[in-house]
Write a protein that binds this DNA or RNA. Structure first.
Length: 287
DNA sequence: GTGTTTGTTATCAA
DNA sequence: CTTGATAACAAACA
């Protein structure tokens, strides 16, 4: 379940690993995962190279050196982007510079092969994610219409954030997960931010006090930054571009901890359904 | 066989 | 028109 910290980790990895490398071949193993005619998709990419890897919320968008189209990548729930250097076979049959699982595997949907022999694998168990080619105009339209304030940027200022609460009758969890209001927060970080701020996730947005709003604002910055520093949360299928797990899972305070003791007050973590999602919180620490 | 997992969109209601 | 709540999708696992 890649959210902002996981997608940002992948973005930074890709920037380092694939930018400038010449694309030699593209293999589309699942047509559904590519939102563009398959042969044309390959034609556009082959011979070109990535020039920039950007992110807005949970969406990656990449530009190319030559072609003017943009590649949008959404991992949805189970998408992975794994980069593998060319296999180096050494004496004894072991290989160097490889991750410890087989690629491609049965969840590999697209493979992009570079001219130096390295490969990028798009794996997606649930097939919700996609690779999509769009024009600059389409890209701009999507970025403008689909996303609200971007956390961790200079534009993420408290007064702007506080405005989102005005006259909103929905609960704070739904507000935090609404991509058109704030970009990048999903189910895990919505729960973690609410715990950090001491606010129950099912509280109505328009009943949240000024002090609480400030706490929520600060907690968004704090939680997301800390998670990025730990290369994200691996709960189910998320891995970085080396196929490695993120370690923020060990710092989760409430998500996935139903029935366990709150680290802060020792009372039992509750689980309810809010905004249509499994929602975790501490009765004592969150009001 | 059943319930659960979630990012996003579709749909319907107010 | 806006907002909100809910279902649906997909696929695997316990």
């Amino acid at each position: 379940m890649p959210e902002l910290p996981e997608v940002e980790t992948i973005r930074r990895d890709l920037e380092e690993k694939i930018v400038g490398k010449k694309i030699a071949a593209v293999f589309i193993l699942a047509k559904k995962s590519v939102h563009y005619p398959a042969t044309k998709f390959s034609d556009v990419l082959i011979g070109d190279s990535f020039s920039n890897i950007n992110r807005r919320g949970k969406l990656l968008y990449c530009s190319f050196r030559k072609n003017l189209l943009f590649l949008l990548i959404h991992l949805k729930m189970t998408g992975q982007l794994i980069f593998r250097q060319k296999k180096k076979i050494i004496a004894g049959g072991h290989s160097l510079g490889c991750i410890d699982f087989e690629l491609p595997n049965k969840f590999t949907r697209v493979v992009i092969k570079f001219s130096d022999g390295s490969e990028l694998f798009f794996n997606d168990l649930r097939r919700f994610g996609y690779l999509k080619l769009v024009t600059a105009e389409e890209k701009d339209k999507i970025l403008k219409n689909s996303f609200g304030i971007e956390p961790l940027t200079p534009g993420f200022k408290y007064p702007l954030f506080a405005q989102l609460f005005n006259n909103r009758k929905t609960n704070i969890k739904a507000l935090l997960m609404n991509q058109k209001l704030i970009a990048g927060i999903g189910n895990i970080y919505a729960d973690e931010v609410c715990f950090c701020a001491g606010v129950r996730p099912d509280r109505k947005a328009n009943k949240i006090t000024e002090t609480e709003k400030k706490k929520i604002f600060n907690c968004i910055n704090k939680v997301l930054k800390l998670s990025i520093a730990h290369r994200g949360t691996t709960f189910n299928s998320y891995v970085d571009c080396d196929g490695k797990t993120g370690s923020f899972v060990s710092l989760l305070k409430v998500y996935g901890r139903v029935g366990e003791k709150c680290y802060r007050c020792k009372s039992i973590i509750q689980k309810i359904r809010a905004a249509g999602r499994g929602t975790h919180f501490c009765l004592k620490c969150q009001k």
